[in-house]
Design a binder for these strands. Structure first.
Length: 209
DNA sequence: GGGTAGATTGGG
DNA sequence: CCAATCTACCCT
């Protein structure tokens, strides 16, 4: 896409995702993700570089069956299972062969509210439905079946450009949540003041038993 | 093959 | 603060 512009067309979004991960992460803010009858507006993301110099990336130690899709072309979903119970979703970015990706950390449910509530019955406030990477996937019904899916066509999981562009000065940046290292790298981006942005939690290694 | 830490969440 | 719950990945 033309540099400095947020994606307004599907082609712009495809070009953005094919480029460097940091602009891609910022540009994903405001985009719509639809799955399972629910649509969210993305409000918080984190960038992860490929094997080069990002110890927090799942691709840091090279290609494995789990992270294989990260090494492929951009625009596909990298979905992983963690803590024995949660699914999280990334959008693969960068050129084919480079394993960068953007974690979708939170969103605002803008359509399919009833469906989202069915999947997250304990939630009280609508702003909590997709407030967190695993909560977002739960609200949308995203699991292993979404692994590798291309997001820019008319498949079951669809990513679309922002309805209203997010102004540059409305984007805040800070350290990534839950990562053990690289706390000096401000690769988490969110829409400042948005109530659906997840709370920051410092990573605490679990005590050994 | 075994041991361990994990891009989290919900409850106390 | 801590348990839940299980998998991918590295190696005591």
């Amino acid at each position: 896409m033309r540099s400095g512009r947020r994606p307004s067309e599907l082609g712009d979004l495809a070009d953005l995702l094919a480029g460097p991960v940091l602009p891609a992460a910022r540009g994903l803010l405001g985009c719509r993700l639809t799955a399972g009858g629910v649509t969210v507006r993305v409000t918080e993301v984190e960038a992860y570089a490929g094997t080069a110099g990002d110890p927090a990336s799942h691709a840091h130690r090279g290609r494995t069956p789990r992270n294989a899709v990260m090494f492929g072309p951009s625009g596909h979903a990298y979905v992983y299972f963690t803590y024995g119970m949660h699914w999280c979703m990334n959008v693969v970015t960068g050129p084919d062969g480079e394993a960068s990706a953007v974690l979708l950390r939170a969103g605002e449910v803008v359509d399919g509210l009833a469906e989202a509530r069915l999947r997250r019955p304990a939630v009280r406030r609508d702003t909590d439905l997709a407030r967190g990477p695993a909560r977002l996937c739960a609200a949308l019904g995203i699991d292993r079946t979404s692994y590798g899916r291309y997001l820019l066509d008319d498949g079951p999981v669809r990513l679309r450009p922002a309805g209203a562009p997010v102004p540059e000065d409305a984007v805040a940046a800070g350290p990534r949540v839950g990562v053990t290292g690289a706390h000096d790298v401000p690769w988490r981006f969110w829409i400042a003041g948005d109530p659906t942005v997840s709370a920051y939690r410092r990573h605490v290694p679990r005590a050994r038993r």
